[in-house]
């Protein structure tokens, strides 16, 4: 994290995680994922974009180790160690009986570390999301956006190699979502972290990521990959630029392509 160098351009990044021919079948006949191939490199900001039922959340759960693939391989460069993963869900998923600080303590606490030992890490993570003044607050005292920030701080606290985000801002209002999008990019710039971001918003995926993996449903699979060649840091100006509009159209076309593939199959 003390590394102040830039994230190397795509193509020159070290491999972090590789999924090869991953299938996931539910109940013997529902193909949630078919033949998923995905390589995640250090410093990537990847969006998984697709309609519901395309298996993007399943892919995330497989990477998180919450379920096991039916076949295929998921390989971590250097193996998966404690604290390598940070996860942010669609809901803030905070413990209501615990203060902000205690919530952010959780990943360390489950590894047997006392609050005093890791207070530095916790304050650092809360500072990263701009909540250092709220360490003693309870979740119910915070707004929806602030709760989500606590959730992000909790994911950051172990300085993970990969952060998984499952539609984290989908339930927030647009103004808050834009603000959190901006802040997330700032964080990424500071921390050089690797992110896989699940979303069903074309605009969000283009604004945030350098690679968009477009997925199609039934069976869940990768249908296209769009690279977003806009330089970081991206600011509010980028949102209104012609380049952004063009990239959104590209991603949108890819998404419609993914949905039509399914339509053709259904009508054939």
């Amino acid at each position: 994290m003390s590394d102040h160098s830039l994230i190397p351009p795509m193509g020159q990044r070290d491999e972090l995680l590789r999924m090869t021919d991953v299938d996931k079948v539910f109940n013997g006949n529902v193909e949630a994922l078919k033949n998923l191939n995905l390589t995640v490199n250090q410093g990537d900001f990847i969006s998984l974009l697709g309609p519901s039922g395309c298996g993007k959340s399943t892919a995330l759960r497989l990477i998180a180790g919450l379920m096991r693939q039916t076949s295929g391989q998921i390989k971590w460069n250097g193996g998966l160690n404690e604290g390598d993963l940070g996860v942010v869900f669609q809901e803030p998923t905070l413990m209501p009986w615990a203060t902000v600080e205690q919530n952010a303590w959780l990943p360390h606490r489950l590894r047997g570390k006392s609050l005093d030992d890791v207070r530095g890490d916790i304050m650092w993570a809360l500072k990263m999301v701009g909540l250092e003044k709220f360490q003693k607050s309870y979740p119910r005292e915070l707004s929806g956006g602030m709760k989500m920030r606590v959730s992000i701080a909790r994911a950051l606290v172990t300085q993970p190699r990969l952060i998984l985000m499952d539609e984290p801002f989908a339930a927030l209002d647009e103004i808050t979502r834009h603000k959190l999008n901006n802040d997330l990019l700032m964080l990424r710039d500071k921390l050089k972290c690797t992110v896989i971001f699940v979303t069903h918003s074309v605009f969000e995926s283009v604004f945030l990521s350098d690679r968009i993996v477009v997925m199609a449903a039934r069976p869940g699979r990768v249908s296209a990959e769009v690279s977003v060649d806009a330089p970081y840091p991206r600011t509010e100006e980028f949102r209104t630029s012609a380049q952004y509009a063009e990239l959104c159209r590209k991603a949108s076309d890819a998404l419609h392509g993914a949905m039509n593939q399914h339509g053709e199959r259904a009508s054939a």
């Binding site: 996860v87 869900f89 998923t93 413990m95 959780l106 489950l110 590894r111």
Partner: peptide, 29 residues
């Protein structure tokens, strides 16, 4: 208990006892 929190505990490798003490008992209070 909240199913997302349960997943989170699993991801962070919580033991049965940790899950009971930090998650289930406070939820049940």
């Amino acid at each position: 208990t909240d199913h997302n929190l349960r997943d989170l505990y699993k991801i962070y490798g919580a033991t049965r006892w940790q899950r009971l003490r930090y998650l289930q008992l406070p939820t049940a209070l």
